[in-house]
C-alpha cells in the first residue's frame, strides 16, 4: 500500500516554451531506461529476492514513481500550450495525431513502452546487476538530455534526478555486497 503526498519530490520549473525538449524528456518517461521501467522493474523484483534487500527495492521503486511524476510535469508544461506549428517544428506532429497533447509511455523516437525493457531473472545477483546497469543508463540519459537542453530551470530539475540515479546505483552496489556477506567476516584459509 502507498500513501500519496500531493506534491513533487523536487520543484519543476520550465523557463522556455520549447516543445522539442518534451520530445527528449519522453525518453525518461516511456523509454527502456526511463522512470516507468525502473519503478516497475524494482517493485516486481522485490518478491523473489532475499529479505535483506526487499526494503531497498521498495524504497527505490517508489521513488522512481516520484521521478516519473516530475518528468510528466515537465513534458506537460512544455506541450500543453504549444501551437500545432510548434509541435510540427518539434517533430511531435505524429504524436499529436495519435494522442493530441496527452502524455504517452513511449521513448524519444515514439516507440511504445514494453515490458520487454525490464527483466526479472529470479537470481538476486543477476537482478541487482541489472538494476545497477539501469541506474547508470538513466544517469547517462539525463546527461544527454542536459546536453541537448538550453533551459536552466529544467536542467536544475534534471540535475537533481541525475544525482538520485548516482545514489540509487550506490545503494544497489551495497545490496550486492550485503548478499555476498563476506564484508566483515574474518577470512581464514
Amino acid at each position: 500500500m502507498w500513501i500519496y503526498e500531493k506534491k513533487l519530490q523536487y520543484p519543476v520549473r520550465v523557463s522556455t516554451c520549447n516543445p522539442k525538449l518534451a520530445k527528449y524528456l519522453i525518453e525518461q518517461y516511456g523509454g527502456a531506461d526511463g522512470e516507468l521501467a525502473a519503478a516497475l522493474r524494482y517493485l516486481n523484483q522485490r518478491y523473489s529476492i532475499p529479505d535483506k534487500v526487499i526494503g531497498l527495492l521498495t524504497d527505490i521503486g517508489t521513488e522512481e514513481f516520484a521521478h516519473l511524476e516530475m518528468i510528466a510535469t515537465m513534458v506537460y508544461k512544455l506541450t500543453k500550450d504549444a501551437t500545432l506549428e510548434q509541435l510540427k517544428e518539434a517533430g511531435l506532429d505524429a504524436h499529436y495525431v495519435n494522442h493530441d497533447r496527452a502524455l504517452f509511455y513511449n521513448n524519444a523516437a515514439g516507440v511504445p513502452w514494453t515490458a520487454a525493457y525490464i527483466q526479472a531473472k529470479g537470481d538476486p545477483i543477476a537482478d541487482l546487476y541489472e538494476d545497477i546497469a539501469a541506474e547508470e543508463k538513466a544517469r547517462a540519459t539525463y546527461q544527454w538530455i542536459i546536453n541537448m537542453s538550453d533551459d536552466p530551470d529544467l536542467n536544475d530539475g534534471l540535475r537533481f534526478l541525475r544525482e538520485r540515479e548516482i545514489v540509487h546505483a550506490q545503494r544497489f552496489r551495497e545490496a550486492v555486497e550485503i548478499l555476498k556477506e563476506e564484508r566483515d567476516r574474518k577470512k581464514i584459509f
Partner: peptide, 16 residues
C-alpha cells in the same frame, strides 16, 4: 539530491 557530500557530482552541459 543527496545527503552525502561524497556522492554529490552535478553534471553541466558544455553549453552551460
Amino acid at each position: 539530491g543527496t545527503l552525502w557530500k561524497v556522492f554529490y557530482d552535478p553534471y553541466y552541459s558544455p553549453y552551460e
